[in-house]
Computed example of a mutant assay.
Amino acid sequence: MQKILVARPIFPDVVERLKQYFEVDWNDGPALDSDELARRLADKDGAITVGDPIGAATLAQAPRLRVVANMAVGYNNFDMPAFNAAGVLATNTPDVLNEATADFGWALMMACSRRIAESEHWLRAGEWRAWRYDGFLGGDVYGATLGIIGMGRIGQALARRASGFAMRVVYHNRSRVAPEIEAALGAEYLSKEDLLRQADHVVLVLPYSAQSHHTIGAQELALMKPTATLTNIARGGIVDDAALFEALRDKRIAAAGLDVFEGEPNVHPGLLTVPNVVLTPHIASATESTRRAMANLAADNLIAALGVGPRAGQPPNPINPEVLGKARS
């Protein structure tokens, strides 16, 4: 029987499903450090990961490893040149989390604009004495301008939601989407700089890479309106969290909503001190149906890539399909 590692806690019934095909080593506890991950991968044919970093050194210590299935859309935790050089397949779980993530991004944006978390903390602290005409005045969402940076599947889902709020939608992407998609979404392509100058609410939904590192830094924050909000549901590192803290502290932008952070689960300490930020622990896809769909899709990828099950040899979501069917180097 082929051996696999499930490197993080996932739904037990998905693990039981995997046991129909494989000998399963399941880490149902805290995340493995790099040494322990490499040790447990050493005799494995495949693995399911949830953001665990895997590079050339780890792959070199796992000569039998043929596939690593990431239970996420993003795969910046994989050193893809190393995967390609070693002939190891990588897979991910796109599409199944689009709507849940877009819902959550919308919720964060609304919470920022209407100061929901800030006012709740104030109420819980016993500060509410009387109604005031100027109490926690926020910004409008209805009729405002939404700026989306990253017009992929989730960005498009956000743009669809904006139509119900009569928003103007502007976007920036590495390349323009097809004209028919722009027309269907009512979306206008802008340079990043023009988007930042014009948007009332900026939402980040782009993949992390060396090129997208600090897409939003001090220079970009300086372009935004002082009444604007920034929401990041993409990846930590896309925003310079230190620069964002300073902009929030100095009220150079109105508010921010962050589900992801540089170096998470660590959070820049300054962000914990300012009231005009909503912080959540990387839960944008956290509905039960969505997380189950992600776990099952990761299992589908692993089962098929290791040549068993109804889709043997045809995993649904290969990232580097060119290595399929080739012997490891």
Rank of each mutant, 00 (worst) to 15 (best):
M1V: 12
K3P: 00
I4F: 00
P12M: 04
L18T: 07
Y21G: 02
F22D: 01
N27V: 07
A31S: 11
A31N: 03
A31C: 01
A31W: 00
D33K: 01
D35W: 06
A38G: 09
R39Y: 08
L41N: 05
D43V: 07
A47L: 09
A47C: 10
V50E: 05
G51Y: 02
D52I: 00
I54V: 15
G55W: 00
G55S: 05
T58D: 06
T58H: 08
L65S: 05
A72K: 00
G74T: 07
Y75S: 03
N76W: 00
D79N: 12
M80N: 07
P81A: 08
A85R: 15
V88G: 07
A90D: 08
T91Y: 11
T93Y: 01
P94M: 13
P94T: 03
D95N: 11
N98V: 14
E99R: 14
T101S: 04
F104S: 11
A107M: 14
L108W: 03
A111Y: 02
W122K: 11
W122Q: 08
A125G: 12
G126C: 09
R129Q: 14
A130P: 03
Y133P: 15
G135V: 04
G139Y: 11
D140A: 14
Y142E: 15
G143A: 10
G143E: 12
T145N: 06
G150A: 06
M151L: 14
M151T: 03
R153F: 01
Q156F: 06
A157W: 00
A159W: 04
R160H: 13
S163D: 12
M167F: 02
R168M: 05
Y171G: 06
Y171R: 05
Y171Q: 08
R176C: 11
V177K: 12
V177C: 03
A178V: 12
E182V: 00
L185R: 01
G186V: 09
G186T: 06
A187H: 04
S191T: 15
R197V: 14
R197P: 02
D200W: 06
H201A: 14
V203D: 05
V205T: 15
L206I: 13
Y208G: 03
A210Q: 13
A210H: 08
Q211F: 05
S212N: 12
H214V: 09
I216K: 00
L221W: 05
L223R: 12
L223W: 10
M224P: 02
K225Q: 14
T227H: 10
T229L: 08
A234L: 05
R235Q: 02
G237Y: 05
G237C: 09
L248R: 06
R249A: 15
A254F: 14
A254S: 10
A256S: 08
F261H: 06
E262L: 11
P265N: 08
P265K: 07
N266H: 15
H268C: 11
H268L: 10
G270F: 09
T280E: 07
A286F: 14
E288K: 12
R292D: 12
R292L: 15
R292V: 13
M294C: 11
A295F: 03
N296S: 13
L297V: 10
L297F: 05
I303Q: 01
A304H: 01
A304Q: 05
A305S: 11
L306D: 01
V308I: 10
P310C: 02
P315N: 02
P315I: 08
P316C: 13
P316G: 03
I319C: 01
E322V: 10
G325F: 12
G325D: 11
A327P: 07
